[in-house]
Simulated scan of single mutants.
Amino acid sequence: MNKHDLVQKAAEAMQKAYVPYSNFSVGAAVMTSSGHIYTGCNIENAAYPVTCCAERVAIFKAISEGFTDFKQLAVIANTERPVPPCGSCRQVMSEFFAPETEILLANGNKDVTALKMEELLPYSFEANDMSHET
């Protein structure tokens, strides 16, 4: 599967977004190392803090099916520039993605920017940071 195919899967997921408050639809597609594809869309709630982003929906769907080894993620929205994930999504991604995992950022024109996880969130908070040893 090439990067445009994964972006297309994300664009299809974007059509299912539940966004009655912001009208800002986002779609995501994550590919596991074994080639399985999981998609997600953003799902809003009147209580904004419980809203869930497309990237996390896709990742959590994959994890709930037993996949925790990821190869690539694509995210798309109808934005001027290729849409970047929010900070919460970046932190979740850093928990499950290797530093070299490719992240494809896209917009409605299908402009694509490819970054590695380590470029998207350098110096991320990790499990090792919770060590009580000094």
Score class of each variant (00 low, 15 high):
126 E>N: 11
120 L>E: 05
23 N>T: 10
57 V>Y: 01
37 I>G: 05
46 A>W: 07
116 K>T: 12
8 Q>S: 04
118 E>D: 10
44 E>D: 09
113 T>C: 14
58 A>V: 07
24 F>N: 13
100 E>D: 15
54 A>W: 00
114 A>P: 00
44 E>T: 05
105 L>A: 07
105 L>I: 10
76 I>C: 07
28 A>L: 02
100 E>Q: 14
10 A>M: 06
12 E>K: 09
63 I>R: 10
102 E>I: 15
109 N>V: 07
7 V>S: 05
95 E>D: 15
75 V>C: 12
132 H>R: 15
55 E>W: 00
90 R>L: 09
89 C>M: 06
90 R>N: 08
60 F>K: 14
126 E>V: 05
65 E>N: 11
104 L>Y: 03
14 M>C: 11
43 I>C: 10
72 Q>V: 02
90 R>V: 06
13 A>R: 01
75 V>M: 14
85 P>E: 09
72 Q>M: 06
50 V>M: 11
30 V>H: 08
53 C>P: 08
103 I>P: 02
72 Q>E: 07
133 E>N: 14
12 E>G: 07
54 A>C: 08
115 L>F: 02
38 Y>A: 13
55 E>F: 01
104 L>Q: 01
83 V>R: 04
91 Q>E: 03
40 G>R: 03
55 E>R: 01
112 V>L: 01
7 V>N: 02
44 E>Q: 13
51 T>L: 05
44 E>V: 10
46 A>D: 15
